[in-house]
Amino acid sequence: MNDIINGNKELTQEQRDELLKTLKARFEKNMNFHKGIEWDKVQTKLEANAEKLWSLNEMERTGGEPDVVGYDNNTDEYIFYDCSSETPNGRRSICYDREALESRKKNKPENSAIDMARVMGIELLTEEEYRELQKLGKFDTKTSSWVKTPVNIRKLGGAIFCDRRYETVFVYHNGADSYYGVRGFRGSLRV
């Protein structure tokens, strides 16, 4: 964690090798997530971008189990989402954003989803991205994940989160300053 504070967003060669090995194994295990995408091309992109590799390592370190879920032809980027079955364990018990965190008078959480994502170099999934993820499998059947909240909702003090129950994806609202042990956030990264 001190590396983040000091601004060092590079992995050692050993960390890079281990992360690439983990990502490749997950990629091969979940071929239905990324039909038509070749690992060698993904790896070439990753090896050319140390900071994005660092961000993927942060996703992995906090329990996100990132995997490739698509490719954007317009931008020539591979898209990674957190694909852990439940919201990442290392990103739970957090409120939505800094404003919500500072507004709490008592029992403040340690962090916020927006701040953590910014430090990690990733974006919170949007509601649409969350729904796309759910087409790949069953995620958040026991937990929930903050998603990027529209400005008009946030201005009124709220934030939205999603989960999957009863074979259905639900979108809910809560005060942005709320936090629960089973709510975290899922991120995305383009490489």
Rank of each mutant, 00 (worst) to 15 (best):
M116V: 06
P66A: 15
N111E: 10
E10N: 15
D72H: 11
K138A: 13
N57G: 13
E129A: 07
V151P: 11
I37S: 13
I122E: 11
D67K: 08
L23C: 03
G157M: 13
A48I: 10
K155C: 12
T12S: 12
R91Q: 03
I4D: 06
Q13T: 14
E10D: 11
G63D: 00
E127G: 03
H173N: 12
V68F: 00
K52H: 13
S85C: 06
W39H: 13
T62K: 14
T44K: 15
N49A: 14
G187C: 14
T12Y: 02
R190Y: 05
G184W: 09
E129G: 07
S145W: 00
V42W: 14
R91L: 09
H34G: 03
E65T: 12
N73S: 06
K142W: 06
E102T: 13
M31W: 05
G64D: 05
K148W: 00
E132A: 10
V169K: 01
G70C: 06
L136A: 08
G157F: 06
R92F: 00
P88G: 09
A50D: 15
L136P: 04
T87C: 11
K52T: 12
N107G: 09
E123R: 07
T149H: 03
K106V: 03
S145C: 05
L133P: 05
L56M: 01
G157E: 11
G36C: 00
E51Y: 09
P88M: 10
R16N: 15
K108N: 05
P109W: 12
N73P: 01
E128D: 08
R26K: 11
F80T: 02
I160Y: 03
A176N: 06
T87M: 04
S93D: 11
R190C: 02
D3N: 12
G187Y: 07
Y81Q: 08
G187A: 14
E127F: 02
I37F: 12
R183A: 02
E14N: 12
S112N: 08
L125P: 09
N74R: 14
N174D: 11
L133W: 01
E132M: 14
R26I: 04
E28N: 15
S178G: 03
Y78E: 07
H173T: 10
D97C: 07
G137Q: 02
T87E: 06
W146K: 06
E127T: 02
I94H: 01
G64F: 02
K108M: 06
M31E: 13
E77A: 09
T62D: 13
N89I: 01
E123N: 06
K142S: 11
N111D: 14
E110Y: 08
T141P: 00
N57S: 12
G175M: 13
V171G: 01
D76G: 06
L11T: 04
I4Q: 04
L189T: 05
R104G: 05
K9E: 09
Q15W: 06
A50S: 15
I5S: 13
E51L: 08
N49G: 15
A50N: 11
A113L: 02
C83F: 08
E60I: 03
G175H: 15
